[in-house]
Design a protein around this nucleic acid. Structure first.
Lengths: 204, 204
DNA sequence: TAGGCCATGTAATGTGTTACATGATTAG
DNA sequence: CTAATCATGTAACACATTACATGGCCTA
């Protein structure tokens, strides 16, 4: 049910489905995303349930826009959701599942390449979040406790992204270091052997 | 498609659907979960695609067990997935969405209560992961680079959970501290007023 | 004898992605 | 003239949860 509530939250300012899609790709994508093909039917359903109202407006560019507005009921439902305590869902990380099974390949160099690629991806992502953070700080100062109410809450969500992705980059580095130690003890001396290494060590 | 591959990975040791469900709730739930009602049809489908083979076996307790085994094709598909580079999906955090919109309530005390509840939840979770880590270290030592191949990879995924959840607890503390600074400047002197406070500060 | 675990599954519903289909306006 | 952006949607499929249905064996 989360998308329903997220749309209600975003629609405290009236908008079209298309606008909302842009909001997702601009301001909200560090914790949620949605495609137009999901947004349009969801808006329709929320209107049927009296949470939203819509009107058609001519657009300066392109076809008519259907602008949605929050109703009193929609606002009440949003507040109910916000007051219901944190909704903690199941985290799913396909790349961790891959790593978990990667011993099946039987070559730690593959794991190393995998972790390097993952680190690159995450650190690019982190840089984006930090760029947004710098913008906000430049605009409103580095004391978030003095931001507007909306600004304060939005900044807090951004900080969680930075903490969380940052910790994953750190984890990549820790893991890469462990891989390198592992590779070194597997090749005790001499040239880089094409032999498959197996430490045959303490198990499980 | 991830569940398919995760089941293939887990089925390097033959198991029943029921066994796999237990594996999810025991060893894998920090990065994935699945219900029996999803596991059974998926196994059936993978068998139709020749990735798995199954046989019925009598069970010591309860009804017959359908034991699934990986085929050569299944193993090849698993390796293909593992070699395809990290699959980084969209992260979705309903509780961040809630926090993002929580200014709608207009009372930062609510945000404080929310963050406190969230912190409690996350720190319980972290404690569980750390308990598992302590077990592993007690059993195999504190030098993961010398674990078995499988042990090394599993330990790495556990470490990511610890880093990631730990960073979120840290973030909760940072945010709670900012909330308290905010509350203090909103109530400059005198008793705890029942008045709604609004700093009316720098916007966005 | 009641409740929990073993063990299998189906049905209904909810959530999310990809592909398809259409068409106007504007900037290069 | 071509591509991008504006703007709306449907259809098919993939993935996931909750509820329902069944029944034997074991322990308290």
């Amino acid at each position: 049910m989360s998308l329903d509530h997220i749309l209600l939250g975003l629609l405290r300012d009236p908008a079209t489905g298309y606008d909302l899609k842009n909001t997702f790709s601009e301001s909200v994508r560090h914790f949620w995303s949605a495609e137009l093909s999901q947004i349009y039917p969801t808006l329709k359903r929320l209107e049927q349930r009296q949470m939203l109202r819509s009107r058609l407006e001519p657009s300066p560019k392109g076809p008519n826009r259907r602008v949605y507005t929050l109703t009193a009921e929609g606002r009440a439902e949003l507040l109910r959701w916000l007051g219901s305590g944190p909704v903690v869902g199941t985290e799913r990380f396909a790349y961790l599942a891959q790593l978990y099974f990667m011993d099946a390949i039987g070559d730690v160099h593959q794991t190393r390449a995998f972790m390097t690629a993952l680190r690159a991806h995450l650190s690019r992502w982190l840089a984006q979040l930090q760029a947004v953070e710098r913008q906000v700080v430049a605009m409103h100062g580095d004391a978030p406790e003095r931001y507007s109410d909306a600004g304060f809450h939005r900044f807090a969500t951004l900080r969680m992204g930075i903490h969380s992705i940052g910790s994953k980059v750190t984890w990549c580095d820790e893991t890469l270091a462990a891989i390198d130690r592992r590779l070194q003890s597997a090749l005790p001396a001499g040239a880089a052997g094409p032999e498959p290494e197996r430490p045959a060590d303490s198990p499980s």
